[in-house]
């Protein structure tokens, strides 16, 4: 029998070695406005030199899914669910006044006209600034989302312990 050493996804030693201000954000929502708030805080904190980790769970996973990605689930229920639950940062609905997408389209136009970055641009900036992005394994499985259908740069999968290990060292913990 051979045993392979697996590197832990979250380097706890690294976490303890440096002690900058830590921010953890749990994004549960897949709404555009809430995702924007999460990423504005994340990018702002990173620009202030803080160490930022974002955890994506449930509908928040839609924000970090590649557009058009289909469900990897084999069973009928989750397959049907995957068909209904569309991902992609550019296709997120507003939590209010979505009006079947019309409200969101109008909001996006207003944002563009005022030089406001949209969610895909905010994600790019966050990655640029070194924001850590971690996807929740449990809900990935539940929603039938495979790791390969997540956007590039989100390669860390973890659970509640990783979140808590980071959050307990943080001074700012947000649940959005």
């Amino acid at each position: 029998m051979t045993t392979t050493q697996v590197e832990p996804t979250a380097m706890l030693a690294d976490l303890q070695a440096s002690k900058p201000d830590r921010v953890t954000i749990v994004l549960l929502s897949g709404d555009m406005d809430k995702a924007m708030a999460a990423f504005i805080i994340a990018t702002g904190a990173a620009a202030m030199g803080m160490h930022v980790t974002m955890f994506f769970t449930f509908w928040g996973l839609n924000v970090i899914r590649k557009p058009g990605a289909t469900s990897a689930a084999k069973d009928v229920l989750r397959k049907a669910f995957g068909w209904l639950n569309k991902g992609g940062a550019d296709g997120l609905p507003l939590s209010k006044f979505n009006f079947g997408g019309m409200g969101t389209t109008m909001m996006k136009k207003v944002m563009r006209d005022h030089h406001m970055p949209d969610v895909p641009e905010l994600i790019e900036t966050a990655q640029d600034l070194g924001v850590n992005m971690i996807a929740c394994t449990t809900t990935l499985g539940l929603l039938g989302i495979s790791k390969e259908t997540l956007i590039d740069g989100v390669d860390q999968l973890a659970g509640v312990s990783t979140y808590l290990a980071e959050a307990r060292q943080g001074s700012v913990n947000l649940f959005i």
Binding site: I40, T43, G44, A46, A47, G49, H115, M116, T125, L129
Partner: peptide, 11 residues
Amino acid sequence: YFCPMPIILTS
């Protein structure tokens, strides 16, 4: 540019 862009560009 609106928040958070001025701060991000500054950093």
